[in-house]
């Protein structure tokens, strides 16, 4: 075991084999890592998303933790409700995890997520972001990146809008902990989930979740593509404490051009050199802004 890259990776498996995720699904890896970090005394709330299917049909479950399936737009508030019920019954140690896709987070679930975050209800919210409505067959969401192909943003009319900056929206709620993470960086994810669990209040993790069918990549490239998202700075890994103290948790050894990330994916195949140049410029700018935020003074009260 001398060379294990993951000496601190929790051993207990809380996700069963036999689940219904596609080959190479980032969402299933993320669930496994997150549950390992939180442990068995955790209740999982799942709104409509790929995990509605992955978790298995009645009368089965692919998790060893309790699961509450809830309507699409209610992940956060349902988690709040579970937590409220646990608290009033004195079960204060049990953790509540909302595990939602980008549609359920960025779009239809944004209102209830905002409500939960504003009340600072004591839950952990993990958004596994595969950047489109994958479970319904790859329709654009507000998490879909600019220029990406989806079935509702066809190649000759690809998405004109930038991906919504969800992390900043959550940070603006001044909740104790907001972080990005990626399926390609499991220990970073595990550590962030553990860190999140140590805070009281609403914790939000935005996790890059590669989707082979939706991104038009072959399944074995899942981690490679997600890793490139971070190494190109398209999806940097960082955390924000109390909505204002920024910390970058991973700095690539070598920053790669965004083209390396884009060219591996069928959903970007139609991009022109000008498109790529824009994405590169925008990415560089966002990275600069993020680094700038890391230097900002924080409120001392």
């Amino acid at each position: 075991m001398m060379h294990s890259h993951y000496p601190d990776y929790p051993k207990e498996e809380l996700m069963h084999s036999g689940h219904l995720a596609c080959q190479g699904c980032g969402g299933s890896m993320i669930m496994r890592h997150v549950l390992k970090a939180l442990g068995s005394d955790t209740i999982v709330v799942i709104p409509a998303c790929c995990w509605t299917i992955i978790a298995g049909q009645f009368p089965y479950s692919s998790l060893k933790n309790p699961i509450l399936h809830t309507p699409f737009e209610t992940a956060a508030v349902a988690a709040s409700g579970v937590k409220a019920a646990l608290d009033i019954q004195g079960k204060t140690d049990t953790k509540v995890l909302a595990f939602a896709g980008d549609g359920g987070t960025f779009d239809i679930g944004l209102q209830s997520l905002s409500g939960t975050a504003e009340r600072n209800d004591d839950i952990i919210y993990v958004c596994y972001d595969n950047e489109a409505y994958m479970n319904t067959g790859i329709q654009r969401s507000s998490a879909t990146p600019i220029k990406a192909w989806t079935t509702t943003t066809p190649a000759d009319d690809s998405k004109a809008e930038m991906k919504k900056n969800m992390i900043e929206i959550m940070a603006a709620h001044r909740i104790p902990y907001v972080a990005t993470a990626s399926a390609a960086f499991p220990m970073d994810l595990v550590e962030k989930v553990k860190k999140a669990a140590s805070f009281k209040g609403t914790k939000f993790l935005h996790v890059m979740s590669p989707c082979p069918p939706g991104w038009k990549i072959s399944s074995e490239m899942s981690i490679e593509v997600a890793r490139l998202a971070t190494e190109t700075h398209i999806f940097p890994l960082y955390e924000i404490f109390d909505g204002e103290r920024y910390n970058i948790t991973f700095t690539p050894k070598k920053v790669k051009p965004v083209l390396e990330y884009l060219r591996l994916q069928g959903r970007f195949r139609h991009l022109t050199p000008e498109d790529v140049e824009f994405i590169q410029k925008r990415t560089d700018f966002d990275w600069k802004m993020l680094n700038h935020k890391c230097t900002l003074e924080v409120f001392e009260g």
Binding site: H16, Y60, S61
Partner: peptide
């Protein structure tokens, strides 16, 4: 009610 009774491990993927 709609409640699980077993794991998905029967499903040999």
């Amino acid at each position: 009610i709609v409640i699980s009774q077993a794991s998905m491990r029967w499903n040999h993927t």
